[in-house]
Amino acid sequence: MTNAILTGLMLGGMYALIAMGLTLQYGVARIMNLSYGEVLIAAAFGAQGLFTGWALSPFAGLAFVIPVAFLLNLAIYRVLLSPLVRRARTRDALEVDSILATFGLAFILQGIMLSMFGGAYYSYSYLASPVHLFGETIAANRLAALAVCILLGGSLYLALTQTRGGTAIRAVAVDPAAAQLVAIDVARTAAFTFALGGALVASAGVLISTFLTFSATSGVVFTMKALIVVVMGGVGNMLGCLVAGLLLGVSEALVASLIDPGLTLAVNFALFLVVLLVKPAGLFGRASR
């Protein structure tokens, strides 16, 4: 039981980090990114390659993966997505367009990874020694990943709430039209935020690769979970991501250990539905007028 909760909290922290990137992309750049999980898996493959090829520790690999992911996502936004933003007349139209475009992107990324790595599961052994905590045994790599995850999530939260740039990003999330009126360059902020979200999910991919097995096709699951956490927490809300992510992680771990590990998605959906029916704007979302 304690073990389940600990596992759940760690998993949940990871979900929260994954979802933070998506909530930035969707809440600020208004892009519903369905290729999100594929970016995560691509980063996981990157970390694996760096580790097995150059014996580079995944945490050192972050220093390489994060800027690359940032630039690639910036390019994706500039080339593929900003034309859609410009042509969309309503938010709904942009939503449908971005869903379809990022779906296409997801398949292309997945196809590339399939042709490079095949459908097999990959993993590597890094910091796999056991650590004793609260009378339970936990792998050291999970703890290390959690620590980095907290560090990344915490510094992002501080950057968003304490800096000028962060305030601009939050302003665009609340009202792009009004943000323009106070001299915020909305298009640039959106592009930057999209890239930031991409860098965040790539770092989550690196962390996850240290303790989970992954394959070219496992991105969809992460997209799904990130979407659920974002909606549950309230779109654009960092604190909501954290709470919803932890909730999801703990409930998954509990159901897996008490009932059946095959029912994790059912748990996700049950939670998702309850939140939607009771509080459609999400746990921390504000009711719209």
């Binding site: 367009d97 379809l100 475009a101 296409g104 992107l105 292309i108 196809g111 042709s115």
Partner: peptide
Amino acid sequence: PNTFTIILGCIFLVIVY
């Protein structure tokens, strides 16, 4: 079989753009 998903993705983009 391997390029199947890539082509599927490209068709999505063709439709959108």
